[in-house]
Design a protein around this nucleic acid. Structure first.
Length: 942
RNA sequence: GCGCUUGUGGCGAAAUUGGUAGACGCGCCAGACUUAGGAUCUGGUACUUUACGGUGUGCAGGUUCGAGUCCUGUCAGGCGCACCA
């Protein structure tokens, strides 16, 4: 009987769907295991062979875990809100929902053909009101919370209000946009609007006036991770900085917890490091400087408190509010011109060339350690958004300050013994401090750092600064608050309306607020976001429902927020929703949360390292503070699958002709390489007839073939994309070889984590293996107990596959299957036990085939519920052991010993062997090292 | 510049604690069966050498009886961050 994969795969896919084989329910008698893939954005192009790589790996893992007795949750869904559908809508008028649903259906069809064990009953779509109900709900909870630095967690905003009523801002240690100072009386005296504005300074979801990445071409703001090198990730359009009133999430409040949490999770070092980088913790000190001839002071942040004696000037960020205050009348014109120049420079220009520019303000600051007057400058190299937007410059020990000092001819004072700063600054944090204070200068204060190491000096200075009351120890983070509004249509609407300019939350019971219909998906003529086109988008406060805009009277009917939420809103807590996807009373029930806890294994690409994976962790921590999520970290183990690149093929057109020359004959011709569809090329040999049909202009193409009469194509590894004609579609592979072959081959290609080019050529080997396996399994079966040799081959496989499952080393598992099958075929094995065990081991990799074989072997139940085979070490033990006898580390000859021989006996036998005499001639034996089961090394001396 | 990561045949790649480098597959070579082969099966295949042998895991050192693996330095590719004080 032939291996008819089409019939087998169709049959079992249908049966699994009918029987609900992969439906998962909470089962307290079993240990849970939650496997999750990053859910896809359903793009119009459909899946290519690269997309399922991670899904296959996690599917194998999920299936193996189920066989090992776990209750496995393996859901799938769609990140359905996104820009491409909206752009398509703008161009064609097609509603994004229509496009999205069509794309989802196509994805589902393609996914179904590969035989995943997803529980589709738990599918979620971020654009479904039943789903975004809880996105809106979480936003409202963040609005109603603030973050306390002492408890390091979120609390209800009412607690903060109470604090204000009792003592104003006294004794307050909370996450905030800016440091405010008012008394309880002042708080009580505020009107409603003032109180609302004040609370925005503390809420976790808040309305803030911030500099945003504005993309004029897309007509929306973008998050930092959506902008690369000054252009948008999607579309590559220029992005500029603009001050706007936006919804923001106070992600920065969680910076320390986001950092600490990394220690508890099982992620790759590189991705953890990327996150640490992104969070950017730096420990330092804030020090206050008095402005000379003025009552004003200002604060700088430094990580090099030890360099206080080397400060020769101060620098303010051009955006700093201090600039105006300190600029003298004589310098005003120069400063204004400079500010104008900086504003004219785009973010991109500033990033590309680091020009040394700046201007003197005319004022001086008094160094609290030396008493010297340091000139205050303004320069674009100081960033307004980090620290205090002001620095003390120590040119001897900071390369940027050094460049600035050299350019403007400012003094440079070295502070480390032996540091040569004539050519460049000495930035290293090591060495012995000197010149602090300088020996030739009368000390200004009774404090010296001379003779200390840099580390000691930093600590000593911090201590002094704190005690003298001129500053404080401070930790700064690079992590910014997330901008949470987008000026788009296709996203979650905010459950917010505006009552006399004060944002109000739509009552929780009225959620979800559904996305309104609009005529046009573009911004309105007045520049409002697309939701400004909606005609039914007003909140009737008394009747608690959405009504026509025409009814807005700002007494009982109010306008609703026109912004929508960004892409990461819906993807931040989707893993929680899978636990209880149909619950319309809560995001999820406490029962579901307690059973499934968090994701045990998360699989996805590295591109989300600083976006989704930060936002999700933040979101989960917030829900954890609320007691909704039961684990502090959402994803315990993370595997990042590599990208599959395309392997493009080229034909070579001879210049000015319609003649194409074979790759191996093109020497001597002037040719233009042209991308050719890889689907009409097999093993780099072009299907000439198909090529003629491919494009009308090639109908009459002529070919210069090679000596074998073939047209050979050139090739290159490139990104898999339509324009390169190198997209390989999984459906085509499934059609030709079957899903099980595709699954096996994708794993056999190499380590899951590694990026690699797709090469259809190698797939034959995997397909051949399955055919051979089929023939072996379908041959006559006996009930006889397997022989020793059979058991050895089998248990070698059990050991290898069981170990590989945990390691994600599936390429070596496939190789082990091949070796095992070869062994068993040679042994003419026909034992039913052996066949059954192999079938179970195969089930995670090739579920359709395994299921068919399982039933052919006489089982009625699904192979998914079979027990995972137990490994027995005894079967691997040999009667005889071959050990290599080596002299001075060089392997010379193998020698056979009975199993269980002692090292001493082996040593004796090796030395007495006649073959050894030849090597030992003229030498004496210095020592003998026996590596049991492997090697006997005889160390010789002259 | 800083951080992470990877360098092994013609190709994709294997190699528990240092212990016969190159498993397995592709490709290639030879053979078998075939009217035929882009089917199937068998054997071979790191390089070099007629052979004995010699050389081999980016490069240069080191530790060791023994190094792909450990240490030091260095080069190259990939990724991330980047005027963060």
């Amino acid at each position: 009987m032939e291996y008819n994969f089409r019939e087998i795969e169709q049959k079992w896919q249908r049966r699994w769907a009918e029987d609900g084989t992969y439906k998962t329910t909470e089962d307290a008698s079993k240990q849970k295991f939650y496997v999750l893939n990053m859910f896809p954005y359903p793009s119009g192009a459909g899946l290519h062979v690269g997309h399922p790589l991670g899904y296959i790996a996690s599917d194998i893992y999920a299936r193996a875990k189920r066989l090992q007795g776990y209750n496995v949750l393996n859901p799938m869904g769609y990140d359905a809100y996104g820009l491409p559908a909206e752009q398509y809508a703008i161009q064609t008028g097609q509603h994004p929902e229509v496009t999205t649903v069509a794309n989802i259906n196509r994805y589902r069809e393609q996914l179904d053909k590969i035989g995943f064990c997803f529980d589709w009953d738990r599918e979620v779509r971020t654009c479904d009101p039943q789903y975004y109900h809880w996105t809106q709900w979480a936003f409202q909870k963040m609005f109603a919370s603030y973050f306390c630095n002492k408890t390091q967690k979120a609390h209800p905003i009412e607690q903060l209000i109470q604090h204000f009523e009792q003592q104003g801002t006294a004794d307050l240690d909370v996450a905030q946009s800016e440091s405010l100072c008012f008394t309880a009386e002042e708080w009580k005296a505020m009107d409603e609007k003032q109180q609302s504005d004040t609370l925005m300074n503390y809420r976790i979801a808040f309305l803030g006036e911030t500099m945003v990445n504005w993309c004029p071409k897309l007509g929306t703001v973008l998050a930092n991770d959506e902008v690369v090198e000054g252009v948008s990730v999607r579309g590559g359009y220029p992005v500029e900085q603009k001050k706007m009133r936006q919804w923001c999430l106070r992600v920065s409040a969680y910076a320390q917890r986001l950092l600490d949490g990394l220690e508890t999770i099982d992620w790759s070092d590189s991705i953890k490091e990327t996150q640490r980088n992104w969070i950017g913790r730096s420990e330092g000190a804030e020090v206050e400087f008095q402005i000379a001839d003025s009552d004003e002071t200002f604060t700088i942040f430094t990580t090099r408190a030890d360099t206080m004696f080397g400060v020769t000037f101060m620098v303010l960020a051009p955006e700093s509010e201090l600039v105006e205050k300190v600029t003298t009348a004589e310098q005003k014109q120069a400063v204004d011109e400079y500010i104008k120049y900086v504003k004219g420079r785009t973010e991109r220009e500033r990033m590309i060339d680091h020009k040394v520019t700046g201007v003197f303000t005319g004022s001086y600051a008094i160094n609290p350690f030396t008493g010297e007057k340091n000139p205050i400058w303004v320069s674009e190299y100081v960033l307004a958004g980090y620290g205090t937007g002001a620095i003390m410059a120590v040119p001897a020990h900071d390369s940027r300050d050094y460049a600035f000092a050299k350019h403007f001819d400012l003094p440079i004072i070295p502070l480390i013994e032996g540091a040569d700063v004539s050519e460049e600054s000495y930035d290293a944090k090591e060495g012995t401090v000197c010149n602090s204070p300088r020996p030739d200068v009368k000390p200004y204060i009774d404090f010296s750092l001379n003779g200390l190491s840099v580390k000691e000096a930093i600590a000593a200075t911090k201590k002094y600064v704190k005690e003298a009351g001129i500053g404080r120890v401070k930790v700064n983070y690079r992590l910014r608050d997330a901008i949470f509004s987008r000026q788009r249509y296709w996203g979650e609407p905010f459950p917010v309306y505006y009552k006399n300019g004060i944002p109000q939350m739509i009552p929780e019971e009225c959620l979800p607020i559904e996305l309104p219909e609009v005529e046009k998906f573009l911004p309105t003529e007045t520049g409002e976001p697309p939701l400004g086109n909606a005609t039914v988008w007003a909140w009737d406060e008394t009747n608690r429902k959405i009504v026509e805009n025409s009814k807005i009277d700002n007494k009982t009917v109010f306008p609703i927020e026109l912004y929508t939420m960004p892409g990461f809103a819906g993807s931040s807590a989707y893993y929680l929703r899978y636990m209880d996807p149909h619950n319309n009373q809560a995001l999820l029930s406490p029962e579901a949360a307690n059973y499934w806890q968090n994701v045990d294994l998360y699989v996805g690409g590295t591109e989300h390292a600083t976006g989704h994976l930060i936002y999700s962790r933040f979101w989960n921590k917030f829900l954890f503070d609320l007691g909704i999520s039961v684990k502090e970290e959402p994803f315990q183990k993370l595997i990042n699958q590599g990208m599959i690149q395309g392997r493009s093929n080229f034909v070579y057109r001879v210049k000015d002709t319609n003649t194409f020359v074979s790759f191996d004959k093109k020497e001597g011709y002037e040719v233009t390489p042209i991308h050719v569809d890889v689907n009409i090329v097999s093993a780099d040999v072009l299907d000439v007839e198909a090529f003629k049909q491919w494009r009308p202009e090639y109908n009459n193409a002529e070919f210069i073939l090679n000596d074998e009469g073939k047209y050979i194509c050139g090739w290159a590894v490139e990104k898999m994309s339509k324009s390169m004609f190198n997209v390989v579609n999984p459906d085509m592979i499934v059609e030709k070889f079957g899903a099980d072959t595709l699954r096996l081959y994708e794993m056999f290609l190499g380590p899951v984590e590694q990026s690699k080019p797709w090469d259809t050529n190698g797939i034959d080997g995997c397909h051949r293996f399955l055919k051979k396996l089929w023939n072996f399994m379908m041959s006559d079966t006996t009930a006889e107990a397997p022989s020793k040799a059979e058991l050895k081959a089998l248990h070698t496989l059990i050991k290898k596959v069981t170990g590989d499952i945990e390691q994600f080393s599936y390429n070596t598992s496939v190789a082990a299957f091949m070796v095992c099958l070869n062994e068993l075929t040679k042994l003419k094995s026909a034992s039913k036990d052996v066949k059954e065990t192999m079938t179970v081991l195969l089930a995670p990799f090739c579920p359709h085939l395994a299921e068919e074989l399982w039933h052919q072997l006489g089982h009625e139940t699904t192979v998914c519920d079979a027990p995972w085979p137990a490994f027995n070490e005894d079967y691997l033990k040999e009667d005889n052991v071959k050990m290599m006898v080596a002299f001075n580390g060089k392997a010379r000859f193998p020698l056979e010993f009975p199993a269980g021989i002692t090292p001493a006996e082996a040593e004796k036998a090796a030395l007495e062997n006649p073959q050894s005499a030849k090597w030992m001639e003229g030498f004496t034996v210095a020592k003998v090292i026996v590596v049991p089961g492997k090697m006997i090394n005889v160390v010789l001396k002259k």
